[in-house]
Design a protein around this nucleic acid. Structure first.
Length: 469
RNA sequence: CGGGGAGUGGCGCAGCCCGGUAGCGCACCUGCUUUGGGAGCAGGGGGUCGCAGGUUCGAAUCCUGUCUCCCCGACCA
């Protein structure tokens, strides 16, 4: 029974496809206040896995979790000139509370450099207190004009790390460490997303930073998405908040700080990097449901077989979900699991049981294969690794196929119509406006070998140019 | 802020021009039959048409005001 497609095909209208996936895979709804979102259980499940994997890596880098207040005195924001200038337009400010106008207005944090800076100043007395490595999981608010679910919402969830170091060198090393060991490692190995790591052009740095490094990924429409950033803040915030310490020599010194963040935007990136016309495709390493055991009809002992396989999978360390809702037709359930992007679906019905097998369906390739019941759990476990690699390699091949080398601004603009352009940084360093006229930006600057440069003045740097979300 | 569009059951829409107190698809509920690719049939529940006022015997429909949302631009990540 050929019906109309479940989702608007990507090739027809990519933004609409994106919204369709979010709705049909039950990831999120729009909130009542413009630009806010309600993250539904399936979407939140993805976020929880992201949090868990990221948290492990952040802690492995030595940072500890803490929590700072949602409300910040407005005066804090104004202490760092560039910072306040960068964030003022999108601040939500509380002017009235407790039934009266507030003496001192309070902002809802758009990011926490300022409050955390204030407390770092308190906690940093001696060189022995450094480095101070903090992270917090929180919500932040930025009043966005053009909201888009997960990609740019008025309120979003994120992790923000804030650290203070004795030297610029130490801060630099740590900001890079987070970029590589926490962010890139997670995004590449868990999200299966190939990345470009690099520095932002100086004109595009975080408000108040002396260097911004970013992870950039390609979406399936050829546009770029910034998946995370790690900033060196120099001594800008340290000076503004008087974060000082006494050195071994007994001299009062000012610290060097960093900050770094990743948000629920990564969910949007995941959708647009791996999703296809059937829905989401969740990499097994991330998936909170890795296998759906779908009982087709509970006849001839199929129910027992399904239930037993589910148990075996759980025992084998596979995050399995038993779908025994046999009053819902098979086709509906198969489609729903595909929309949700569960890596492997196992179909079990009387026909399979009669042959002592089950049918395994891969979400990445759509391939169906009959497998003996006795080896099913082991096979599925093995598929987890395989699908993880396939998704990553497919995304990498897509990115390569949609990346062109350019040697002039015009060529870069042409290439950026459909994907990424790599162009010598020297060619586009002064072409910000020219690129912007076509909605193209320098996403990041790399060395020729793809590594992250120290600054944009090195020789032979390459700029990745693209349209972006 | 400039230009355009729209507010009608949960969602998507028709009805408005030519006033007569709401209709369709999906979703939902019940029953039966189904179940290996978004099930079929039958029966049912749910809205008073963004809000306020006006015209009229009578307003979703006409008039006035107002609010909100969406799209394009601008602005901004």
């Amino acid at each position: 029974m050929a019906k109309r497609p479940v989702l608007t095909p990507q090739s027809e209208d990519f933004p609409r496809w994106y919204q369709d996936v979010i709705n049909k895979a039950e990831l999120a709804d729009n909130g009542p206040v413009r630009g806010t979102m309600v993250i539904r259980p399936y979407g939140y499940g993805l976020w929880e896995r992201m949090q868990s994997e990221m948290d492990d890596r952040i802690k492995a880098c030595g940072a500890e979790n803490a929590y700072f207040p949602l409300f910040i005195p407005e005066s804090y924001l104004t202490k760092e000139a560039e910072h306040v200038e960068g964030f003022s337009p999108e601040l939500a400010v509380v002017t009235h509370a407790g039934g009266k106008d507030l003496e001192e207005r309070v902002v809802v944090r758009p990011t926490s450099e300022t409050v955390i800076g204030e407390f770092m100043a308190k906690w940093t007395q001696s060189y022995r207190d450094l480095p101070l490595l903090l992270n917090q999981w929180a919500n932040v608010v930025r009043w966005e004009l053009r909201p888009r679910t997960f990609l740019r919402t008025t309120e979003f969830l994120w992790q923000e790390g804030h650290t203070a170091h004795a030297t610029r060198e130490d801060a630099n090393v740590y900001a890079r460490r987070i970029l590589h060991e926490a962010y890139a490692d997670f995004m590449v190995n868990v999200l299966a997303m190939p990345l470009h790591l690099g520095i932002k052009p100086s004109y595009d740095r975080f408000a108040g930073a002396i260097n911004t490094m970013a992870c950039e990924a390609m979406m399936r429409d050829g546009k770029a998405l910034q998946m995370g950033t790690s900033h060196e803040l120099g001594q800008n915030f340290a000076n503004a908040f008087d974060i000082t310490y006494q050195s071994v020599e007994g001299v009062q010194e000012t610290v060097w700080t960093t900050s770094w963040g990743t948000s629920t935007r990564m969910i949007g990136g995941l959708i647009m990097c791996h999703g296809d016309d059937k829905g989401l495709r969740v990499p097994p390493a991330l998936a909170h449901i890795q296998a759906a055991v779908l009982l087709i009809r509970d006849e001839d002992g199929a129910g027992e077989v399904a239930s037993k396989l589910h148990d075996e999978l759980v025992e084998a360390g596979v995050r399995s979900r038993l779908d025994a809702q046999v009053d819902t037709p098979f086709g509906r359930r198969a489609t729903d699991w595909e929309l949700k992007g569960v890596p492997v679906r196992v179909e079990i019905g009387p026909r399979d049981v009669a042959e002592n097998k089950v049918t395994i369906v891969r979400r990445d390739t759509g391939e169906k294969q009959p497998v003996g019941i006795d080896i099913a759990a082991a096979t599925i476990r093995g598929l987890m690794e395989e699908i993880q690699i396939t998704l990553h390699d497919e995304a990498l091949a897509f990115r390569d196929a949609n990346t062109a080398e350019a040697s002039t601004v015009a060529e870069a603009l042409e290439a950026a119509k459909t994907g990424f352009a790599t162009v010598p940084w020297s060619v586009v360093a002064d072409a910000e406006k020219e690129l912007a006229a076509d909605a193209v930006t320098v996403r990041c600057i790399q060395r020729a070998d793809g590594t992250v440069p120290d600054d944009e003045d090195e020789d032979d740097l390459v700029a990745i140019c693209a349209r972006a979300y």
